[in-house]
Nucleic acid binder design. Structure first.
Length: 408
RNA sequence: GGAGAGGUUCCCGAGUGGCCAAAGGGAACAGACUGUAAAUCUGUCGGCUAUGCCUUCGGAGGUUCGAAUCCUCCCCUCUCCA
């Protein structure tokens, strides 16, 4: 095991706050002396079926702890998931059914171990303890908190001020999360900055239950590909770790320049010295930021796929978007018609290029549709049903090879 | 339980009998410029081969030639009183 100082250096990378840091130092000292790993907790609500880069900020920190010899304890919030964490939200989350949560939890576990070492990980569902809790116990737990304290929380305060609804069950979220820390005796919990309140609440609950309070470590909230809002599935600005190399690379290329450095820092294993170099070059505008973005894209693809995939994804990107050539794999669609000719928008909807004929008509009117490299200018254009393959390009990035079969 | 305010298209929000598929902004999409960056500019932004028709303004009914707008009942949210 490394010394306290060395461990702290790794632990601090990319973190926002460690509270209280002195306690962490003591815990580390004890851990080294007794050769006993710390229990590092992080919770997840399986509210969507997959993990995106936003989640990996914390998971990667967990991984660093594992590399330092500590034990990761993952909490899958099957019960809290049903409540829905209101953190960072201005509205009540839809409550998920138990089945949905369980199903998502499965894919989560698979994805966790793309990053984490299974041998140094403990996984718990918080239903393990919550499903057994009596109403009496719940009331007891709830009695330890006052409304005023819970309402201190940013998002509650905000919503209260704006007179938007806050459901009672949401108030339980921090308490439940805190109780998780009691149940698994966490030494340290990692969460995004918006989790600060929940993380701190856990300390109080742990003390209430006479368990040594956890140290809390917060990580920045990762902005999504739009560069404005937090990365989240529902906002559509996310990059999933299960996405294809091309998708991941392409999405990275579309992020705003300001995100390049934070993404490097939070999402890659690039060593600190190089990180400083990147920062300097980006600030000094010495290179075209695009070059660093390509590097970023390939680093990230490498983590979730392979070096080879990363190279391929980059080559493909340059081919399609820099040289304006055709992508490697274009989906082929076969459609059959009983007429000899079809109105173009119909082909667009049938193939999935557009969701409605109105949309297809607009696409054509705006000059966004190309068939066999020729821009379609006439909305009324009909296509011959000739059984041959035609190349459809809609917008910048949608390609289809479409075969129209005559089938009277 | 009482009094008041409110629920509008993906989101915010205007609209209080016809000029409303519904202002404005955001998001999104397409085009121009580019580095599939940002910024900017232009256009589109419910559906239907459509100078028209259909569906939409919390829900269900009703008044009217005509309703997001008026009436009745119901559901939901917020504020104050208890």
């Amino acid at each position: 095991m490394l010394g306290v100082k060395e461990q702290l250096e790794v632990i601090r990378r990319g973190t926002v706050e460690i509270i209280p840091e002195e306690e962490l130092i003591i815990k580390l000292e004890v851990s080294i002396k007794e050769n006993k790993p710390l229990r590092i907790k992080m919770g997840f609500d399986p509210t969507a079926p997959d993990i995106h880069l936003g989640h990996t900020v914390g998971i990667r920190k967990l991984k660093q702890f594992q590399e330092l010899g500590h034990l990761v304890v993952l909490i899958i919030g099957d019960y809290t998931g049903m409540v829905g964490d209101p953190s960072g939200r201005s509205e009540t989350r839809p409550q998920l059914s138990y089945e949905e949560v369980r199903k998502n939890a499965e894919t989560y576990q698979k994805q966790f171990f793309k990053i984490l070492d299974k041998k140094k990980t403990e996984v718990h569902f918080n239903g393990e303890w919550f499903s057994k809790m009596s109403f009496q116990e719940i009331m007891h737990l709830a009695s330890k908190f006052t409304l005023a304290r819970i309402l201190e929380r940013d998002d509650f305060a905000e919503r209260y001020k704006e007179q938007s609804p806050i459901s009672l069950h949401e108030l339980f979220y921090p308490i439940m999360q805190g109780y998780d820390s009691v149940a698994i005796k966490a030494d340290l919990e990692i969460g995004a900055t918006e989790q600060k309140f929940n993380l701190l609440t856990a300390r109080q609950i742990q003390e209430e239950y006479r368990v040594p309070p956890q140290v809390i470590l917060t990580m920045p909230v990762l902005p999504g590909t739009d560069g404005v809002q937090r990365m989240s599935k529902s906002l559509g600005n996310y990059i999933g770790i299960d996405e294809s190399p091309e998708e991941i690379f392409g999405k990275i290329m579309s992020i705003p320049d300001e995100l390049i450095y934070p993404y490097f820092e939070l999402l890659t294993d690039i060593p600190p010295a190089e990180l400083r170099k990147i920062k300097k070059e980006l600030e000094g505008k010495e290179v075209n930021p695009m070059e660093w973005k390509k590097r970023l894209g390939s680093e990230i693809v490498k983590l979730y796929h392979s070096q080879k995939d990363a190279e391929k994804a980059q080559a493909e990107f340059e081919k399609v978007f820099s040289k304006k050539e055709l992508p490697e794999n274009i989906p082929v669609k076969e459609l059959s018609y009983s007429e000899k000719q079809v109105w173009t928008p119909y082909v667009c909807t049938a193939s999935g290029i557009a969701t409605s004929t109105s949309q297809a008509v607009r696409l054509i009117e705006q000059g966004g549709l190309y068939i066999d490299n020729e821009r379609v200018t006439d909305v009324n254009k009909k296509i011959e049903v000739d059984g041959k393959e035609h190349l459809f390009k809609a917008g910048k990035r949608t390609f289809y090879k479409i075969i129209l079969k005559y089938n009277p």
